[in-house]
Design a protein around this nucleic acid. Structure first.
Length: 803
RNA sequence: GGGAGUUUAGCUCAGUUGGCUAGAGCAUCUGCCUUACAAGCAGAGGGUCAUAGGUUCGAGUCCUAUAACUCCCACCA
């Protein structure tokens, strides 16, 4: 039978190995079974996983196991996102060198080595958490198979006209030395100065004041703007202004984006200081002047400041302006700046040929897709819609980096024409491979594209990449829409958005039906946990070793979906108590069932009551989990379980112990009820607490049910139409029990102390009489008198305990 | 500036489509070693459900306004 104490360290490892070795969670499609498919988030391989990630996976776990217990074939694949900038940044930190300091091939080799190490760590963590995804077979976003799918997607979208190559303004990170996408931006508050600078009006001795936070860009000024309604400055319109210190003339133009109340109402425009400059350049067809290099140092345009970094140049220019009496005043300000999420460097705007996926022309379809998808919780839809509405840039998918999937593209040396690889040759590396055919112009010399793709250009294909492990069909829509995309809310604008883009463009289909969005786990002080920050002091490994995987899963699944929660260890104590209780209750109940084989029979009234309550719970539990209301479902189940322990078991204990006094049939009735209700409870707990439920199941039920694991059995359905009247009436019996307990507690006597008699008034006395034997036994009362009337319990004399 | 969320007991939070006396855990207090569990059990105290209006037979729940905090987005001259 069950051990006296439950040793989770030993048992959890035992069952994890058992599941792994016996392929318990293997995906076995079967005509008679519905498929439930999950687009599992592949963890980005760029550092240690933290409790936030872990809790999010534990939600997915519960849903996967829930559908398995419902008898569906669950496709729960697993993979790693191990290419791209996040991984490169991680590897640069580990090897303490920047990528450009090493030969390209050497750096890529190091990336592969380091990611392998991290992936092994992830793998063992996922196993120790009891995850039921297919750990034996997983995808990698840098593998040749994935490269093939990703390159094919590029070629198809290029041919469909969604992808274009252009030299246009692009968000640029001078630290990572690459273009980036709008979704990689993060706000940061930065202290700066607002500088009021004198611009001389050409041909006069008069000045006009221009305010700027970026005086280092004076060398790149192309014009000055005023608002068309600005009467005060209207006289400037036919004049030229002289850029201070750099001494060249620029025209004065009008644009309604200029606010008259900021600074002097006169604003300088360079290409490009910020996103408004980008807009002005487009509207007014302004010349493009690059005043800093891709590495963030000033160009020859800056004259004596050439070679200085942007920040250094800013200080130096201000100093020169001050010396020359061109600086009127400075205000200290704190303003929000867009920074790159990978390195926190302020993002600049630059111009370089890049590959783009057009999203701006398809905002409407993308928006509508958000309306059609089923979001859990519902409010997360607004975040997606808000993002789509505010899109300002097409999706730049080229990165001037190394460890990514190459573009299947060459350029003709002669005419510059774009040559695409043939689909059957994929994957290709244009720096090593050559195109099969000559260019249309007859030229046979080519330059391979050296940029690599944004990591999201590939991970946006996870429905195809992950299902390919099963279908072997590559870029294919036969398993789309998948049932579920789960992730945390930070990925709505990134992974979710990009996946929707690709699925619509390729297949004109939604990638999934449902999205389940988890909240963040913050550190105790409310700050964000991040792989890159050092504030994840409670490592998942440590927590699981200390508290067990089951308790950790209990904690994660008690969190409200979508809501951020400060991490607190106190919450783990509830889980510990629950596990302990399940163990003890099962140990107790099963000790009576060793030689018992359940047989249909007439049941005692309170046994019927419990089974009706079980039916009621069963229906609500399944329906809540179907709606991704995990915490609510778990809460309902817990309430039922504690009621089972504290009321039902207490009520039938005497019958179980003493068939000679209470009758063989009455004893078997309790055994029958315990056998099935406990089994049903264990099965319902099994998605959240897979280890302890497996241990109990395998010790007792497995051979009786002829099953290899609780996790490939189905939930126990004892009927779905609960008899509400029976439940209500039974609850009244429990009320009587409570009244007696309260009386004894208030009189400071033990619960086993006898009471001479009680008087029950109710309108269901015939019902209560059927439970009289149990009631007398659990309450230690000698007599019950009945009266007709409103419900009331009067307690009689206490019979003192014999010494 | 746009959007979303939160505000319920000392603390952390549940509360589904409006419906009996607003719940749980922790903490506090009282009692009980009850033939599973003292890591337990039985009880008790503790709330103007942020504020002000409104709809309704009935509001923690719906509507309007206000306040505080959090997040996302935009602004960034």
């Amino acid at each position: 039978m069950l051990d006296k104490k439950y040793n989770f360290l030993e048992k959890e490892a035992k069952w994890q190995n058992y599941w792994f070795e016996n392929d318990i969670y293997k995906f076995e499609p079967n005509k008679n079974k519905k498929i439930y498919s999950i687009d599992t988030p592949p963890p980005t391989v760029n550092g240690k996983i933290h409790m936030g990630h872990l809790s999010s996976y534990m939600h997915i776990e519960t849903i996967a196991r829930h559908h398995r217990m419902k008898g569906e074939s669950v496709y729960f694949p697993f993979g790693f996102d191990d290419n791209g900038l996040p991984t490169e940044r991680y590897v640069e930190k580990v090897i303490k060198k920047r990528a450009y300091e090493l030969p390209r091939a050497k750096f890529i080799e190091l990336c592969l080595e380091e990611t392998k190490k991290l992936e092994d760590e992830f793998f063992s963590l996922y196993k120790s958490a009891g995850f039921s995804c297919n750990l034996k077979q997983h995808y990698s976003s840098i593998s040749p198979r994935t490269q093939k799918i990703s390159q094919q997607s590029f070629i198809e979208l290029y041919n469909k006209g969604y992808i274009y190559h252009a030299e246009s303004p692009v968000l640029w990170c001078t630290e990572c030395r690459t273009a980036c996408a709008q979704s990689e931006l993060e706000d940061a508050e930065i202290e700066s100065t607002f500088n009021y600078i004198k611009f001389k009006i050409a041909g006069t001795e008069e000045y006009v004041t221009v305010a700027t936070t970026r005086p280092e860009m004076l060398c790149g000024v192309v014009c000055v703007f005023i608002n068309p309604d600005d009467k005060k400055n209207a006289h400037l319109l036919d004049k030229k202004l002289i850029v201070p210190y750099f001494n060249f003339e620029v025209p004065v133009l009008t644009d309604e984006l200029v606010s008259m109340d900021k600074g002097s109402g006169v604003v300088m425009c360079c290409t490009f200081g910020d996103t408004v400059d980008k807009e002005w350049q487009r509207r007014h067809n302004l010349p493009i002047k690059k005043c800093f290099t891709d590495y963030g140092t000033m160009t020859e345009l800056a004259g004596e400041f050439q070679g200085l970094k942007i920040i250094e140049a800013r200080k130096a220019v201000i100093e020169k302006l001050r010396e020359n009496g061109l600086l009127i005043k400075q205000e200290n300000i704190v303003h929000n700046v867009s920074t790159h999420d990978r390195c926190s460097t302020p993002v600049e705007i630059s111009v370089k040929p890049q590959w783009f996926i057009d999203v701006l022309s398809h905002k409407k379809e993308l928006y509508d897709a958000g309306l059609k998808l089923n979001w859990a919780p519902k409010t997360m839809r607004a975040r997606y819609l808000n993002w789509v509405e505010n899109l300002a840039w097409n999706w730049c998918i080229s990165r001037q980096r190394y460890f990514g999937i190459p573009f299947p593209v060459w350029y003709c040396k002669n005419c510059g024409n774009v040559i695409l690889a043939d689909i059957e040759d994929l994957p290709v590396d244009p720096l090593k491979d050559k195109p099969k055919h000559a260019c249309k112009c007859g030229c046979t010399e080519f330059i391979g594209e050296s940029d690599v793709m944004d990591t999201w250009a590939t991970s946006s294909l996870t429905p195809q990449i992950s299902t390919d492990m099963y279908t072997q069909k590559g870029l294919d829509d036969s398993m789309v829409p998948m049932n579920l995309r789960p992730n945390a809310h930070d990925n709505i604008r990134v992974w979710d958005f990009y996946t929707i883009v690709k699925s619509l463009y390729h297949f004109n289909k939604l990638p999934w039906n449902d999205l389940m969005i988890s909240g963040y786990v913050t550190s105790a002080d409310g700050s964000k946990l991040a792989k890159s920050k050092g504030n994840n002091t409670n490592s998942p490994q440590k927590i699981i070793e200390t508290y067990s995987a089951d308790v950790t899963r209990y904690w994660a699944n008690s969190l409200t979906l979508g809501k951020d929660t400060a991490f607190s260890l106190i919450e783990f104590d509830n889980g510990k108590k629950l596990i302990n209780k399940i163990w003890n209750a099962s140990k107790f109940v099963l000790s009576f069932l060793e030689n018992y084989t359940p047989q249909e029979q007439d049941l005692e009234i309170m046994d019927k009551w419990l089974i009706e309550k079980y039916k009621d719970l069963y229906v609500r539990y399944i329906s809540l989990l179907d709606k991704y209301e995990i915490a609510l479902a778990l809460n309902e189940l817990e309430k039922f379980f504690w009621n089972f322990c504290d009321n039902y078991i207490e009520l039938v204990k005497r019958r179980l112990y003493n068939p000679d006094i209470y009758g063989e049939k009455q004893c078997n009735s309790a055994k029958y009820t315990c056998y099935y209700v406990l089994l049903g409870i264990l099965k319902m707990f099994s998605p959240v607490l897979p280890h302890i439920t497996e241990e109990i199941y395998m010790n007792f039920y497995a051979e009786r049910e002829n099953s290899k694991s609780i996790h490939i059995s189905n939930y126990l359905n004892m009927g779905e139409d609960a008899n509400k009247t029976l439940i209500e009436n039974g609850n009244k019996v429990i009320d009587i029990l409570s009244a007696v307990r309260q009386f004894k507690s208030e009189n400071n006597v033990s619960l086993k102390t006898f009471i001479k008699d009680i008087k029950v008034s109710s309108k269901i006395n015939n019902f209560i009489k059927q439970a009289e034997v149990d009631l007398k036994a659990v309450c230690s009362i000698n007599e019950i008198d009945y009266k007709d009337g409103d419900f009331n319990v009067e307690i009689g004399e206490i019979i003192p305990d014999e010494q």
